[in-house]
């Protein structure tokens, strides 16, 4: 009986250790997923959003981007555009928020390919954006590049992918 309790305590101790380790030193994939979830939340905004709230959210979004970020969009309805640098992204995001009255963005699928050095990752995401003007969500596949900069994972590159060429 005493041995049983000892075994139980040992198992509980190991489980607590594993949990503590994964909390203090999370796997890069887990951190990247958390960052992407934050980015999706920051890209979403309610209808009739106050300008100050929009500014704050865009500022928070830009903090999750690398300074030399490059975004390449080539999609039906959007045309072909390339945006470079955080300032340009900030401008575009504010313009988008003022032009569209609300959006709900989510990434239903995420696939992460971590580089061997664990300082960069190639990420494929399916983006589903619900806009008030569209009856169905706008769906687009994107290829992202995440880089570890200053101890945190930031979005360094984003480009649209055509599943049908």
């Amino acid at each position: 009986m005493r041995a049983g309790w000892r075994l139980l305590a040992l198992v509980a101790g190991v489980a607590a250790g594993v949990w503590l380790w994964s909390t203090l030193f999370p796997h890069p994939e887990k951190v990247i997923r958390a960052r992407l979830s934050e980015i999706a939340d920051l890209m979403s905004f309610p209808a009739n959003e106050p300008p100050l709230a929009a500014m704050t959210e865009v500022q928070q979004l830009c903090a999750r981007l690398s300074p030399d970020i490059e975004v390449r969009v080539d999609a039906p309805g959007f045309g072909r555009h390339t945006l470079q640098g955080r300032d340009r992204i900030r401008e575009a995001a504010l313009q988008f928020r003022s032009a569209v009255n609300g959006a709900h963005v989510r990434f239903p699928d995420i696939r992460i390919n971590l580089h061997p050095d664990r300082r960069a990752a190639e990420v494929f995401v399916t983006v589903a954006a619900r806009l008030p003007s569209e009856p169905d969500p706008v769906v687009q596949e994107m290829r992202l590049e995440m880089r570890k900069l200053g101890g945190d994972w930031r979005l360094a590159r984003a480009e649209t992918v055509r599943p049908l060429r």
Partner: peptide
């Protein structure tokens, strides 16, 4: 048809 990232959203063709 699936996207690279997963199968939550599929393309019907």
């Amino acid at each position: 048809i699936r996207f690279t990232a997963g199968e939550h959203i599929l393309i019907l063709k």
